[in-house]
Design a protein around this nucleic acid. Structure first.
Length: 347
DNA sequence: CTCTTGCGGCGCTGCTTACG
DNA sequence: CGTAAGCAGCGCCGCAAGAG
């Protein structure tokens, strides 16, 4: 025992230390020598890790945690997820066209994503169709800083009753249900875009953007009122260094001329509002495809009437499924209000 | 018939290393 | 120090066997 003051200022030879029992006053050197003779030096335990690291996920056989996905997924896998998120129930061949890869590669990509429980494939009417799982939806929603719950409510491909048979009535998501219920329409839109992408590629241009309905809608004001367009798709075709935007409407059934005017009205307003050029940098075409050719004729007639009445020009092109399957979306399958002959969709 | 998957192979890209 | 060569990873394709 020593006084703190002495221990701090004294050297190793200063006689300032005394044992609790006796009165003998010793120096630090003497104290150490006594300890060496009789007792033993204090020995530190060898440092040892007290907490062993938890076994890695791969070792436990568990799936990798959600937060690893953004680093582990490859660019092509992310592109696939985006496309399938945009176009639920897309067929694998359509996905391949939009990605610009062969069947072989599509299988590779989808198998990987299915293994990670991001993607669910379902066989519907003999064809494999793809939709995101709830985990896949959550991944995209988090990336976009959007609500996971809202995304599931709208886009979930999970079944309400897991034991009940698969069908649109039994789907969780509102939009996935709708898209499956109108599968021929959904398919037709996918097919249009996929064929367009293929045609563009082989012609040296490219479909650089293909927005699904939720991103294709446009809201605008005219005379103080709020209006909107709700097309089936919006896309941008890049050819010769120029961007050519377009809206796509796929009319599932023939409609009466009176309702046709109503369908046309939002576009008339949109193009009257000078918004198209501001929104897109180039005036987008309106491509309207009908199941039958007669309805296309009606629409062109109504368009001509409305254009004269309102003194505006709307770049509408119409076609029908027969002409489209023969010539493709970029072929001479389109008619406009101004010209009687068939022509290509743009330019 | 549709679709997957194992194998082999090619070309591109970015990084490291050896060389002048 | 700059450049070339080597290398690994990735994305992709064709072929062919095989599952459902």
């Amino acid at each position: 025992i020593a006084l703190e003051r002495d221990a701090a200022s004294g050297s190793a030879e200063a006689r300032i230390w005394r044992a609790p029992s006796g009165a003998a006053v010793l120096s630090l050197t003497e104290v150490v020598n006594i300890a060496r003779a009789g007792g033993q030096w204090a020995v530190e335990r060898a440092p040892a890790r007290s907490v062993a690291p938890r076994p890695l996920a791969a070792e436990r056989g568990a799936r990798e945690p959600d937060w690893m996905l953004p680093v582990r997924l490859k660019p092509a896998e992310k592109r696939s997820l985006d496309l399938i998120g945009d176009w639920p129930w897309i067929r694998t061949d359509h996905l391949g066209s939009l990605l610009g890869v062969e069947r072989r590669r599509v299988s590779q990509l989808t198998a990987g994503l299915e293994r990670r429980d991001l993607l669910a494939a379902r066989r519907i009417e003999g064809r494999r169709r793809l939709a995101l799982t709830d985990r896949g939806l959550a991944l995209l929603a988090r990336r976009d800083r959007a609500s996971v719950g809202a995304a599931r409510k709208r886009w979930s491909a999970a079944l309400v009753g897991p034991d009940a048979p698969f069908g649109w009535r039994n789907l969780r998501g509102r939009r996935t249900r709708q898209l499956l219920r109108n599968l021929t329409h959904t398919d037709a839109v996918h097919d249009f875009l996929a064929t367009l992408a293929n045609q563009a590629r082989s012609a040296g241009s490219a479909l650089t953007q293909a927005d699904p309905p939720q991103r294709a809608s446009r809201y605008f004001r005219l005379d103080g009122r709020l209006y909107s367009l709700q097309p089936d798709a919006f896309g941008v075709l890049r050819c010769d260094g120029r961007d050519q935007p377009f809206f796509l409407e796929w009319e599932r059934r023939a409609i009466r001329p009176s309702t046709m005017a109503q369908r046309l009205a939002p576009y008339m307003r949109y193009y009257a509002a000078k918004r198209p050029l501001e929104d897109h940098g180039a005036v987008p075409s309106i491509l309207i495809a009908f199941e039958d050719g007669l309805a296309a004729d009606h629409l062109l007639r109504v368009t001509r009437e409305r254009q004269q009445m309102l003194a505006i020009r709307v770049p509408i092109r119409v076609s029908n499924s027969d002409a489209l399957s023969e010539h493709g979306p970029l072929g001479t399958a389109w008619r406009s209000a101004d010209r009687a002959t068939l022509s290509r969709p743009f330019g």
